[in-house]
Design a protein around this nucleic acid. Structure first.
Lengths: 191, 191
DNA sequence: TTTAAATGCAACACTGCTGCCGCAGTTACG
DNA sequence: CGTAACTGCGGCAGCAGTGTTGCATTTAAA
């Protein structure tokens, strides 16, 4: 494939990500417009709308997987890993409501990575929620909301970064029952 | 208007709520099908698709407003009010992702009611988040996720009810900074 | 029972999107 | 430079959804 063709493919995926995040049912014309290309070119790279969507989901899943890998989800301290993953994802500006809204959803690898992360958080006593689906749902859901916050939102400013706000919110939401102030490695109960 | 016509209108709204919750772009044919009516009948009650959507949003907003009123958001203890509102909403099986997804979103009254609720929670020291948009976003977002949980989800069983799980999760998520175990009316720090 | 209203059915035109094609102009790469 | 690939443009048919209409039938209500 020629170099400019490859560029076009990338631009299409980029445009699709941006446009579909705002309106999931956006037309290929709109996507082609955003990419600065003709609609026919989109059809030349992707046989059908579905093919484009599939490619987009795969690309996003690869980014998720890479983020999980970079954050060393399996080995790093779990809270740090959670914040690190969030940070990378926000840098990538991944548009979650779109990806999650698709039938394909996350790949098994990504799914497993997130589940591992929350299993480790639970084992470390940082959260008490036991359902992996519930943990994933809360995480991705709050990620979307944090992503939509304006830059000058007070809570965002207070937390310092989107990743920090998301991390605190997720941990708080999943720290359900039990003594509200004690984690399992509790060594600061008198301040 | 004749009685059966009124029934039809109600069935259409009911069907629309159910169908659009699953697929926001569902056709009027699909909605009419679900309602057990002909598509033409839908058009007789609602001049356009947009008119149906508007009516649906208004209906749902009325239910929200009523729920906020019933829970005495302005006067009852805020945590109890939060759980009470959630309980009523879950009983109504209101389909949030659809309502929230619409441009119209919530009515000013509902918006104000929710903001009041979280302002009181903040004043009572139950949460520390200061942005009302952030509070509302977290609440509605988690409400959707709790709504989608299967009946036998472990965290749901542990919490006792959807309303209880949602309440704990929301409060946890919005209790961001500061000492993790002390509320402002803190009188139990040594057990 | 009588009457007006509501519905079901089956068309119809219109719109927007998709997928495809050919042609001419442009661009990358040997 | 020359060729092959890529792109833009425009048009085409097909399809799904919307909005409307007419007519026969059913149903609520006086």
């Amino acid at each position: 494939m020629r170099a400019d063709a490859e560029r076009s493919t990338a631009r299409i995926l980029e445009a699709a990500e941006a446009v579909l995040a705002v309106h999931a049912g956006a037309s290929l014309e709109r996507i082609a417009d955003e990419a600065g290309l003709a609609r026919a070119t989109v059809h030349r790279r992707f046989a059908s709308r579905q093919a484009l969507l599939d490619a987009l989901v795969e690309q996003l899943n690869q980014r998720y997987a890479r983020a999980l890998e970079q954050a060393r989800v399996a080995t790093a301290p779990p809270v740090a890993a959670l914040e690190h993953v969030s940070e990378i994802v926000f840098e990538l500006k991944i548009t979650h409501p779109f990806v999650i809204g698709l039938d394909a959803e996350q790949s098994p690898e990504v799914r497993a990575g997130i589940e591992l992360l929350f299993a480790r958080l639970r084992h470390a006593g940082e959260i008490t929620a036991s359902g992996s689906d519930w943990c994933r749902a809360v995480y991705l859901s709050l990620m979307t909301e944090v992503h939509l916050l304006p830059d000058d939102a007070p809570d965002l400013v207070a937390a310092g970064s989107r990743a920090a706000l998301l991390t605190k919110a997720v941990l708080g939401a999943l720290r359900l029952a039990g003594p509200p102030c004690s984690t399992r490695n509790d060594d600061r109960h008198s301040g």
